[in-house]
Simulated assay, not measured.
Amino acid sequence: MGSAYIRRRRETKGQQMATAKRVTAGVLLIGDELLSGRTRDINLSEIAKFLAPIGVSVVECRIVPDEQEEIVAAVNHLRTKCDYVFTTGGIGPTHDDITADAIGAAFGQIVDVRDDALAIIEEWYAKTKTPLTESRKRMARVPAEAVLIDNPVTGAPGFQTGNVFTLAGVPKIARGMLEDIADRIEGGAVTLSRTVATGGLREGDLADGLRELADAYSDVSIGSYPYFFENEAGEIVRGTNLVARSTDEARLDHVIGKLADLSRSVGGQPVIDPADAK
C-alpha cells in the first residue's frame, strides 16, 4: 500500500507540494552493535529514500547504545525537534531489546504484553510451525497507547507512539514496516535533486565559484562530491559531482545551469543529470 500511496500523492499533489511547508524527520539508530562497528547501518538511507517522495526531509540522525536513559533522552530530543521520528532496533526477543520500555518511559505509558500484538505473533508462529516461547512473547510488549505497525516479513509488529515510529533493526524488516505507515504521514514540499558531473575537475578547481553560487542562491542547497576510480588501463580517473537540491523546480533548473557554466569556466565538460549519478 505504501508505494502505491506515495505514487498517488506525487501524481495528484505535485504542484501543491511546491508551496507546502517543510516537514522534517529524525532517525534514531539503536544498538551497541552499530557503535562497535560490528553491524553496518543501512536503515538511515532506506528511511530517507522512503520519505523523500512524500515530502519529508531527514534533518538529524543519532546512534545510541542499548541503554534506556540514552534512548529516552534521544527520543525526547528528536520528537520535539522534528515532525516525525523513526527508531530502528531493540524490539526483538532478547534481554537487550529495551526500546519498547524506553519509548514507554519517554511518553509516560505502561509497557506490557498487549493482546492485539500477541494475537499477531501467535498466528505468525502457528503458521510457520515455530514454538512460541516466553522470550518471543516479549515482542508483543508495546506501550499502552501505541498503534501497531504491520510487519510483513516476520510478523512481530512495530508500533507508533505519538509522532515516533518504532521499527525493527534488521533492514529488510524495517523496510517492510515502512509500507504500513505512508498513509499516516502528512508530507510537505518535495525536495528535488539534480546533478552536474564534472569529470576531470577536483573540488579545489571549483571551490571559489561554488562559494559565490552558494552565497547568491542561499535558498538552494549546493554540494560537491569528489570521486576517483581506476579504469581498465590502470589510470586514476577523478572528477566532482555538483549536486543542487531545492523544492522549487524552476529555481533548481536555473542553478543547475549556473553549475554547468562554472564547470566550463574552469575547463570542464559538464554532464547534466548523468545516468549513473548518485
Rank of each mutant, 00 (worst) to 15 (best):
L192I: 08
E60N: 12
F159R: 12
A18R: 14
I120W: 05
V72T: 06
E145C: 13
G104D: 03
D101W: 13
M177Q: 09
D273W: 14
T128F: 15
V75D: 01
V27Y: 06
A277M: 09
I173P: 03
G204W: 13
I6V: 09
F229Q: 00
A216M: 04
A144M: 11
I181Q: 03
T154S: 13
V271E: 02
L132V: 08
A260Q: 01
I30R: 04
G37W: 10
D66P: 15
A277V: 14
L35H: 12
D41G: 04
T94K: 15
K129M: 06
A275E: 00
Q109G: 05
I256E: 00
V72A: 05
Y225V: 09
Q15I: 15
A117Q: 08
I6A: 07
A146Q: 03
D183Q: 14
L51V: 05
R238V: 14
T24P: 10
R79H: 08
E11I: 10
A244W: 01
E33V: 05
V58H: 06
D273C: 15
L51S: 05
R211Q: 09
D215V: 14
R114N: 13
S263E: 01
N76D: 13
S246G: 07
L210S: 06
I30G: 05
L210D: 00
V111E: 01
V220N: 08
A189E: 05
V220F: 10
L167W: 07
S224M: 08
I222P: 09
Q16Y: 03
I47R: 02
I185F: 05
A146C: 07
R38H: 09
L29R: 07
G239H: 08
K278N: 09
H95L: 05
P143N: 12
A277L: 10
I110L: 10
L210E: 01
G55C: 13
A74E: 04
T94M: 14
I256F: 01
D219W: 00
V72D: 00
V271A: 09
E122V: 03
L178M: 10
T88C: 02
N241Y: 14
A4Y: 12
L148E: 00
L44P: 15
A168S: 11
T88M: 03
L78S: 04
S218G: 11
E123W: 08
T133C: 14
D32V: 10
S3D: 08
G199P: 15
V64S: 03
G2H: 02
V27T: 02
S221Y: 04
F107R: 13
D205G: 11
R141F: 10
T94A: 14
K172P: 11
A48L: 11
E122D: 00
M139P: 02
V196G: 11
N163A: 05
T247I: 11
M1A: 11
L213K: 11
L34N: 10
P171V: 08
A144W: 03
A216R: 15
G223H: 04
L213F: 12
R202T: 07
R79A: 06
F86A: 03
K129Q: 07
P152H: 02
A216F: 04
A102N: 03
T247Q: 09
A100V: 08
A197E: 00
K137F: 15
V153K: 13
T94C: 14
G239L: 01
